[in-house]
Amino acid sequence: MSDAWSHDEVIYPELGRILSESQGERNEEIAYALAICAGYAYAEVKGGADKVTLRKRLARVGLQDNTCKPIELSVDAMFIDSTAFVVRACEGKVAILCYRGTEIADLTDWLTDIDTEPETYSFPQAPDRRNWRVHSGFYRSTRATWDDVMAELASAGPEALYITGHSLGGAMAAMAGVMLRKDQDPRHRQVRDALKAVYTYGQPMIGNVEFARECQADPFLRDNVIRHVHRNDIVPHLPPVATGPFAHFGTEFRYLNDPPGLESPSGYWRRNASARQAGMIDFALTPWEFVARRIPMAGSLVARWRPIGAKIEAVADRVEKAADTLHVPFGRPPSFVCYSIEDHAPHHYIAKLATPGVLSEFERERTSVS
């Protein structure tokens, strides 16, 4: 008897080929690999980006020959804290642009998240040359390192490019996808043509309704910006309604229920209607939900209410969609979902995206063959 998989082998030996050959459609192995990339982008060493840890995790998942260059810029007074990793693999044929998300102890990151005074971003291809409004903090943090990021990607000349990130990193990844898609600079043509997909995890909304509608009209941004929402994660429902009308674009996949028995959870992500904005009351109650889940009786009540609230929300979504189609005013009732900040943690996204036979981002199940 011998082990079919040893500890020194990678999780997805064919990951490089899968990334190269994908046409941008959602792939479970890619979703898991990029979730690991987005999660370990938070690693730090001596106050700076820890590229060694990120390289090790990506090597374990299947990109053994990867190189990684961090590009960082922080300007606290401007609420800018931008960290991007440009990863190259498969002899430079595959590239991943990964943005770091909100760091728990970093005040600048939190100020970037709540900086909701919309900045203007122009779509050069819009026939009427209108400006659409986007989240100021997300736009500035993406734009701050954009020139260096594009120079690095252009020098790499990849055949396949993926952009990813969690939380604030997901917002910057989505913004980068739009900026690259609309980029008319001939020097960036190869990079633009190489873009396969944008995978985000716990991503907040980045622009107003008109911005989202314009992005949704682009087939690539509609189908190849793939957003993942874990259960009742509050962040995809932000900024709250009081800051103005924001909306998502792209295709949303949501994880709601655990699979029965010992089945892999990765198959339980379902295509979902785009998350709507949370109200200020929903936002304010989120810390209390975090506390309630740690009190046995309160936690049990929250758990029992979740499926009921989700069904009510689903009905309200259908009514709202029908009313919009018929141009009938519809006063949306208050939310019936107990939004959660705990569901936002990157390790939850990684755990729920693990494919069959994968124990964690460190190893697979061991099987024996004769």
Rank of each mutant, 00 (worst) to 15 (best):
P118I: 00
P260F: 07
K311D: 06
D113G: 13
V191M: 11
R17D: 15
Y32R: 14
P158N: 01
D65V: 09
E365Y: 04
Y201Q: 03
A273H: 09
F138K: 09
R231N: 07
P240A: 08
T116L: 03
D128H: 10
I206Q: 02
R254V: 05
W288K: 15
A174K: 10
E28T: 13
G331I: 01
N208C: 07
G177Q: 02
D185H: 05
H348W: 09
G207Q: 00
E119V: 13
G39Y: 11
Q203N: 03
Q125Y: 05
A35C: 03
K93G: 03
A84G: 05
Q203V: 10
K196P: 02
R55G: 00
A156N: 13
A144E: 09
G92D: 00
R293W: 14
R187C: 09
E119W: 13
F330T: 03
E9Q: 13
A217S: 06
L15R: 07
E152M: 13
I350N: 02
D193W: 12
E313I: 06
A217I: 00
E214H: 14
L15N: 12
R181L: 11
D233V: 08
L285P: 07
K321M: 14
H237I: 11
L58W: 03
A354E: 01
E342W: 12
A84R: 07
V94E: 09
A43Q: 06
H248M: 08
P127G: 06
E44I: 11
S274Y: 08
E263P: 00
Y268N: 00
R192D: 04
M280E: 13
R293N: 14
S370W: 15
A84F: 04
P127V: 00
V302F: 10
E91P: 07
G250H: 03
K69N: 04
F330I: 06
K321Q: 07
E72S: 11
R88W: 11
T102E: 12
P356G: 07
L63R: 01
A105T: 13
T164Q: 01
Y268L: 05
Y42T: 08
P236G: 00
G137E: 05
M179G: 01
V229Y: 09
D148S: 13
V45A: 15
M297T: 15
A31E: 05
D109V: 06
Y349L: 04
A43C: 04
L73S: 00
Y201D: 10
T367M: 15
G24M: 00
D3K: 14
H248G: 03
A176Y: 08
V149Q: 06
V87S: 11
G157T: 09
H7R: 14
R231C: 11
G169A: 04
E44H: 04
A314C: 07
A278L: 07
V291F: 09
I350Y: 07
A31G: 02
Q277P: 11
P260C: 13
L238P: 01
A197G: 02
D147K: 12
F220K: 03
R133S: 09
R227G: 12
M175S: 11
A49T: 09
A49F: 05
R100C: 01
L153F: 04
R140T: 11
I36M: 06
R270K: 14
A77P: 00
E44R: 15
D106C: 08
G279Q: 07
F283L: 14
G137A: 03
D223V: 12
R192Y: 01
A303V: 11
H348Y: 03
